[in-house]
Design a protein around this nucleic acid. Structure first.
Lengths: 123, 123
DNA sequence: GATCCCCCTTACGAAAAGGTAAGTACCGCA
DNA sequence: TGCGGTACTTACCTTTTCGTAAGGGGGATC
C-alpha cells in the first residue's frame, strides 16, 4: 500500500536514483535533513509546507527502507523520534547538488521568460 | 490529460529539476538521447525496453515543452522525426551525472547485500 | 477535566500516471 | 492486394499516488 516494490531491475544508475527520490516530498525531506543534520517529526512537518502526516510518515519509512535516512526512536514519553541522513543519504544529497543548481538556474530563467526559451540557435 | 501543470511555485532547485525528470521513462530518454546525440522515434522506442508508443510520445512532448528536447520534423513520406537534446537538456544530463554515479554505486552494493546496508556507525 | 502535543495508523476516495489496443494516412515491397 | 514500416492519436481501463479525516495512548498544561 505504500509503494510498488519495483518490478524488474534498474536499467542504469539514473533509473535507480530517480526511483529512490521520486515522491512528492522526498527532495524536500532530503533538503531539510541535510540543512539541519537532525530533525524530529514535527519539525520536519513544519519545515515542509503542506505535507500531511500520512505522507510524511510514508515517505520517511520508504527512505528508511532505502537506506537514506536513519530513524532513532527514544523510549520516552512523550515519544521522541529523530531523523537524520545516513551516509548513503548524504552522498545522495551531494549527488543531487548539481541537479539543484540546474533547477535553480531554470527557475531563474523562467522568471524572465515564461513564454519560450530561446536557445543559442546561431552557434 | 498529459500532466498536471503543477500548482504553485517551486520550493527549491531540486524540486524544479525533479518535476522535470519525474516520469517513468524520462531518465532513460535523456540517457539515450545523450548517448546517441540524435534519435528517431522508432529508434528511441527500440532503445527503451517496454515503453509504449503512447508513453513515449507523451514524455517526449512534455520534455519538449520543458525545453529539454528538440523535435525536428522532416516533411517527408514516410514521416521522419528526429529528437535531440537542447542545451538545457544537455546541461540537465550533466547535472544528472553524479546522480547516475550514485545510483550505479547503489546497484553495485545491492548486488552484494540485499538484506541491509551497514553504515559506518563506529565513526 | 479538557485540551494540546507527540508520532504515528487506518480507512476512504480522488487525482494522476501508466498500460492496452485500435485507428490514421501514406508508401515500398512482393 | 496484403503486409510491414513511419509517427503518432484516441479511447478505455487499471495501478499508483496523494489528500482528507479520524483515532490512539500517554503526559503536560490550563
Amino acid at each position: 500500500m505504500a509503494k510498488a516494490p519495483r518490478t524488474g531491475p534498474y536499467i542504469c544508475g539514473i533509473d535507480a536514483a530517480l526511483d529512490v527520490v521520486s515522491g512528492k516530498w522526498k527532495g524536500l525531506i532530503l533538503w531539510e535533513l541535510d540543512a539541519h543534520r537532525v530533525r524530529r517529526f514535527a519539525e520536519l512537518r513544519r519545515g515542509l509546507p503542506g505535507v500531511s502526516e500520512k505522507m510524511l510518515t510514508q515517505h520517511l519509512r520508504e527512505m528508511e527502507e532505502d537506506g537514506l535516512v536513519h530513524r532513532k526512536v527514544y523510549a520516552e514519553v512523550p515519544p521522541r523520534v529523530e531523523y537524520s541522513l545516513t551516509e548513503s543519504g548524504r552522498a545522495l544529497n551531494q549527488a543531487l547538488a548539481p541537479l539543484g543548481a540546474w533547477g535553480t538556474e531554470r527557475i531563474r530563467r523562467e522568471a524572465f521568460t515564461t513564454v519560450d526559451m530561446p536557445e543559442t540557435s546561431h552557434g
